[in-house]
Amino acid sequence: MSRIPLSALVGLVFTGAYFLAAIFAPFITPYGMSEIVGDVWEPMSRTHLLGTDSIGRDLLTRMIYGGRTTIFIATMATLLSFTTGAVLGFLAAVIGGWIDQALSRFVDLVMAIPSLIFALVVLSVMPVTIPVLIMVMGLLDSTRVYRLARAVAVDINVMDFVEAARLRGEGRSWIIFREILPNALSPLVAEMGLRFIFMVLFVSTLSFLGLGVQPPNADWGGIVKENKEGIVYGIAAALVPAFAIATLAISVNLVADWVLNRTTSLKGGRGG
């Protein structure tokens, strides 16, 4: 493995820090998540590093717990979207015929409706809980993964080693998991970073609109919603999540770029 470039290293450090903060949230937060510890919108001070929020809870604590919820939902939704999208995409590419046609046209149809609008339509009749959010976001996003996975798998499916596996009588699941999956993994992993960011933005947007994570649970979009009235009075509490989301997004992007560059050069430019 060649040396890690500086930009990717910075990305890795920040991404790692966010994930660690999310995992160990209860141990590193100075106060309880919904514990009221001070006045409304206190400025930054030594006891409250980021100040307090609209009802006097410690903002740093809320941010760390919020990051935990946001990252958890985004990760689960990304995993769901990748499992569904990749399995269906590979199946469509390997089986072909009318199954491929039906799946691909259905995906075209879902992608013809903006995903935020479709998510809002579905959430208008569903109870807004975290599992429902993960399901809706993951399944809507799996259409994009499906397209990528199918395109990559169609390429690999006609290669000699897959033909050889077929001729020696391997079953369909062997072809998909032992022949196609290892070779399709690198473009999929690079895409995973971008989808993860998209999920973070998506869940923050939904929570900001009041249709995502419900109070008293915190997440980054929700923190903006709770503190937005303060902006008019010049209180910047609602802008703190902006910084968190942007740094997380940029650092994951840097890592994904590096993975993509590395894998494409390994494969002689194929698979990007």
Partner: peptide, 21 residues
Amino acid sequence: LASISIPEFLIGYLLVYFVAV
């Protein structure tokens, strides 16, 4: 890169905070 990494509503509030307030 920066502007695609921030959700729309946060760009909105950044502008409100700095330009309007």
